[in-house]
């Protein structure tokens, strides 16, 4: 997204003041957000407590956040919009479900194999669409989602439209985590993924991927095979998306072909834009906002999704840096106000 980091255009044709960032990532940039993220997660967990409804909300929010984080590398960093994430999440979910119902393998194996299969599926779809970008890629991945959902409904091993249910409990080498422990683990997984993605964004790998969005020819000429890097980015995203599916399926205890709808994928595109594309934590914040608006506010009822979609348009038009982007600006302004001696030329 090129609106990432750019401020609204000035009304008159005056060159904007130069913007700057530290040339190399500082420890604060790479790790500072983790502290805030963990604090927020602990706050949420305390708020949730043992309330079953709130627990479901939190798991849903974690699922949304993971799908949005899965889209973060290909969509926000590399700039290619794929809408196949419903299919990837389904792969993750069905992997857990099938390992549980059809095999005697430990359940964590399902958590592992789902992301791998989803990554392979993403590479195959990516190879088939390697010449496509933009509108064409959106259209093909939409058609893929529909075809895949159709396949899940009609295949015999997936249980058809009824899907699969009643799974074994998750065991991790003999340890059977309780429901509360799993809830905490969901929040922890989101924090860890966001934290690692943020470090990845700042790493040399992240620089190459972010350059690929704007100037693929320069990246290619500098020695990175751009189509392959695209596939790697897609595969990583699909893996994280499958993790979301595994989490939701494990916690809800059932999965159907339409568990991960296209609506969810649309919302997942909007989450980083709402929260802020500058860091993966923006996608997490966006997921929390979307869950709050669409599921937790009874006064909004069905119009919560409408509010989200209109809100996204508004954010794109007037506040392209999202909520976190503005909080960050606010923080910098505050710091500058507190240290007046450093002058205005930061």
């Amino acid at each position: 997204m090129t609106m990432n980091g750019s401020s609204a255009p000035p009304p008159v044709e005056v060159a904007p003041p130069p913007r700057h960032r530290p040339p190399w990532p500082s420890g604060l940039q790479a790790n500072g957000s983790l502290g805030l993220g963990v604090l927020a997660a602990i706050g949420l967990l305390v708020w949730v407590g043992v309330n079953g409804y709130k627990q479901t909300l939190l798991v849903t929010a974690a699922t949304y956040a993971l799908i949005a984080l899965g889209m973060y590398i290909p969509f926000v960093l590399a700039g290619s919009l794929s809408l196949a994430y419903g299919a990837y999440a389904s792969i993750g979910g069905y992997a857990v479900a099938l390992i549980s119902t059809e095999t005697r393998l430990p359940l964590w194996f399902g958590w592992l194999i789902g992301p791998v299969i989803a990554a392979v599926a993403a590479v195959i779809l990516g190879l088939a669409t390697r010449r496509l970008s933009g509108f064409y890629l959106v259209a093909v991945t939409l058609l893929f989602s529909e075809a895949f959902q159709n396949y899940l409904s009609n295949a015999s091993f997936t249980g058809g439209n009824a899907g699969l249910a009643s799974f074994r409990n998750l065991d991790v080498f003999g340890w059977y985590p309780s429901n509360e422990q799993l809830i905490i683990a969901s929040a922890a997984v989101v924090c860890v993924v966001a934290f690692l993605l943020n470090r990845l964004r700042l790493s040399p790998w992240g620089i190459v991927v972010r350059s690929m969005r704007e100037v693929p020819s320069a990246v290619e000429a500098a020695g990175t095979r751009v189509p392959i890097l695209n596939l790697v980015a897609l595969a990583m995203g699909a893996g994280i998306g499958a993790l979301a599916g595994a989490l939701f399926t494990q916690m809800s205890g059932s999965i159907q072909p339409d568990t991960f709808t296209l609506n969810l994928v649309f919302l997942a595109i909007f989450m980083p834009i709402i929260g802020g594309t500058g860091t993966p934590w923006g996608a997490v914040l966006g997921a929390l906002i979307v869950v709050e608006l669409t599921l937790n506010l009874p006064s909004l009822h069905t119009s919560g999704t409408l509010l989200v979609s209109l809100g996204v348009l508004l954010i794109m038009l007037v506040a392209p840096r999202g909520v976190l982007g503005y909080l960050d600006t606010g923080r910098k302004e505050l710091m500058r106000a507190l240290t007046p001696t450093k002058g205005t030329d930061g």
Partner: peptide
């Protein structure tokens, strides 16, 4: 705002599609 980059317009039009669908539902 986005100049030659196609992605922002694509995302915007996706948001329009979704917004009209939701608005019509309401």
């Amino acid at each position: 705002r986005s100049g030659r980059s196609e992605l922002p317009a694509l995302v915007a039009v996706t948001a329009v599609l979704f917004a009209i669908e939701q608005l019509a539902g309401v």
